[in-house]
Design a protein around this nucleic acid. Sequence first.
DNA 1: ACTGGACATCGACGAACTTCGATATGTCGG
DNA 2: CCGACATATCGAAGTTCGTCGATGTCCAGT
Lengths: 127, 127
Amino acid sequence: MTTFELTPVGVGLGVDGGPVGSTGACCSPLVTEPMDAARAERLAASFKALADPTRLRLLSIVAKSEGEEACVCDLIEPVGLSQPTVSHHLKILTTAGFLERSKRGTWAYYRLVPGALDRMSQLLADA
Amino acid sequence: MTTFELTPVGVGLGVDGGPVGSTGACCSPLVTEPMDAARAERLAASFKALADPTRLRLLSIVAKSEGEEACVCDLIEPVGLSQPTVSHHLKILTTAGFLERSKRGTWAYYRLVPGALDRMSQLLADA
DNA sequence: ACTGGACATCGACGAACTTCGATATGTCGG
DNA sequence: CCGACATATCGAAGTTCGTCGATGTCCAGT
């Protein structure tokens, strides 16, 4: 597992419409800088955390829960998967910076990290 | 391959802060509807197309290219992968609705589909 | 202390993904 | 028509991912 990134970092796709030296037909050699591999890797890790239907549903359920938080037991039945699997997905979302965990008593409550999704939104908008 | 979706469809994560019948401690049985499986599947498919560093770099390069379009030969060298691999990624991005292809002569030119990324941005913002 | 419950971790299996070389398709110039 | 080139498609190999059952850990009652 390529170890998901800690937090979604803000970076655009890097558009600026700057004129590039136009070669006649094709294959102009200078694209200056596209998007460095490291940045692409981090961004992809964030999107990867969102690239699963179960995880999107988990985010949705947490978001619409009272107090904007939900414990694992609230999440197992709606998604229809085993408890270890749900726990696994929640860990991925937490490691990626979209959820935060707070344990109270026997239960573990998950809630949305305030600006996380908005930051991803901004990334795509700036593209 | 789970056949990527045709176009990113607009759907929010479904937040509305509505009060749910509060059971005493935990595990309230009624979450009404989180996000139907089909919607989650489509959204996840779109994110999956963005969940790869190479594809993000391809989008970036295309976006900052002159005329906002680039042929495959422009893309192979920057990402440092084989031509079949680049072609493969471009197909995924095209099938997902982020790129469109137009063949002129021997070359295939790819450009961003106008509202595609913005639509994804909106999805996350509405969450 | 012991039992029961909530959650996390581990190990394993099948499916999906990324990548490549080889090959097919299609286009232009001679 | 033929050879050179730009892309796409086709297996195949290696890796990653999603899922589960079994197990470990921690907390609250009795």
